[in-house]
Simulated assay, not measured.
Amino acid sequence: MRLRIDCSYDGGQFHGWARQPGLRTVQGELEHALATILRLPDDQALHVTVAGRTDTGVHALGQVCHVDVLPEILDSCIGHMPTNGIEALERRLKHVLPADIVIRSISSAPEGFDARFSALERTYVYRICDAGKAVDPRMRGFVLAIPQLLDVDAMNEAAALTVGLHDFGSFATPNPGGTTIREVKRARWTRIPDSSLVQETGDPAGYRVPALESGLVCFTIVADAFAHNMVRSLVNACVQVGNGKKNLDWFARKMAEPVREGSTGPIDARGLTLEHVAYPPDGELAARAQAIRAKRTLES
Results as ranks from 00 to 15, higher is better:
T49M: 11
A88C: 03
I78C: 02
A88S: 08
A60H: 09
I86W: 05
T83C: 08
I37M: 09
T49L: 12
H47G: 13
T49G: 06
D55W: 10
A60W: 06
L38Q: 08
V64E: 01
R53Q: 11
V48M: 13
A60L: 07
R53G: 10
V50L: 14
G79M: 04
D75Y: 05
I78N: 01
T83I: 06
I73F: 01
L70Y: 05
V48A: 12
V64C: 13
N84Q: 02
A60E: 04
D55K: 09
I37T: 10
D68F: 04
V69C: 06
T49S: 14
T36R: 15
L46V: 14
V58W: 08
D42S: 14
L61T: 13
C65M: 12
V50T: 15
T54W: 09
A51F: 12
R53W: 08
L38R: 07
H59P: 13
R53V: 09
D43I: 08
T49V: 15
L40F: 14
P41D: 07
V50R: 13
P71I: 04
H66G: 06
P41Q: 09
Q63M: 11
T36Y: 08
V67H: 02
L38V: 13
A88K: 00
Q44N: 13
H66Y: 06
V58H: 11
C65N: 03
A60D: 06
R53S: 11
A45W: 08
G85L: 01
V48S: 01
V50I: 15
D43S: 14
I86K: 04
H47A: 15
C65Y: 02
I78F: 02
